[in-house]
């Protein structure tokens, strides 16, 4: 296949970027999208030009490292698929493909298609855990968990933290990501003691990082490579609102989050 790529090139976070056109020649339809970029990069390096910077690692759809917007859609046109698992046979010979980084205020560009998603880590650090020290655990079977609840928790825990939900959202909201983590713990008894505290702290952290709010466009759900359902956001909002109305803990946590901010 022969293709024309329009690729976002940007030296660093401070510099301005622009779309640059490159030919991608003799691409195998069996190549993954990233292997096609590898091939273009090898040609650029051969000419002494700087290759297109992009993030990837496992290349099997699980690590969440790859992050690019392909023809306007995070991870490209195939549903439930990361860019690394997207294969060139979904495109047609002669296509022009536009490739841009995940764009959001909270995801500053590092270089070209590489963005800084450490804001996601900071949200998790704010409360995305069960406070249990190593060695303090009861026997694994001491807490029976209904299979149906465990399955929901797993559906939520399948999030790979790639950030496609943010890139797709017109508000740059991280709520699908946030709510997936919260739902994992919400549906497990281990998460119950810190449920309110965790919800408030993580929501505040996301606000602080500059992610927007949810206005129910469901773009996040549509691009999520792991098909995380958007109704987790509703669960999260219910917990947050309930906490703000009736929980004394809410005021404490809210206050400390603001102080830290």
């Amino acid at each position: 296949m022969n293709l024309t790529l329009r690729v976002w090139r940007q030296k660093g976070n401070s510099g301005a970027g622009k779309l640059v056109t490159y030919p991608a020649k003799d691409v195998s339809p069996d190549s993954s999208f990233l292997e096609m970029l590898d091939q273009v990069n090898q040609e650029l390096v051969g000419k002494g030009e700087e290759p297109i910077a992009f993030d990837s690692d496992c290349r099997e759809g699980i690590c969440g490292t790859c992050s690019m917007v392909i023809n306007g859609i995070p991870h490209g046109p195939q549903r439930g698929t990361t860019a690394c698992q997207l294969h060139m046979r979904v495109f047609k010979d002669g296509d022009t493909i536009t490739i841009e980084p995940f764009r959001a205020t909270a995801f500053p560009v590092v270089r070209d298609l590489v963005v800084d998603r450490s804001s996601f880590d900071r949200i998790q650090q704010a409360g995305g855990y069960v406070s249990v020290n190593t060695g303090a655990a009861p026997d694994g079977n001491a807490i029976p968990i209904p299979k149906s609840e465990a399955d929901i928790a797993f559906d939520a825990a399948a999030c790979i933290g790639c950030g496609a939900c943010v890139a797709a959202c017109k508000n740059s909201s991280a709520m699908l990501f946030l709510s997936a983590k919260l739902a994992q713990y919400r549906h497990l008894p281990q998460g119950a003691p810190e449920r309110i505290r965790r919800t408030v702290k993580m929501v505040e952290a996301a606000d602080h990082e500059g992610f927007g709010n949810c206005t129910n466009f469901y773009e996040c759900e549509a691009v999520c490579p792991k098909n995380i359902p958007a109704h987790f956001i509703a669960e999260m909002n219910r917990d947050y609102i309930k906490a703000s109305l009736v929980s004394r803990e809410f005021d404490d946590v809210h206050k400390s989050a603001e102080d830290e901010g």
Partner: peptide, 22 residues
């Protein structure tokens, strides 16, 4: 055996039987 206990306590969603056991 301790690893499984630790991971369950952290909220790792292991596969479960209908009775709720691992």
């Amino acid at each position: 055996t301790l690893i499984i206990d630790q991971c369950v306590a952290q909220g790792v969603p292991f596969a479960r039987e209908y009775g709720g056991t691992l």
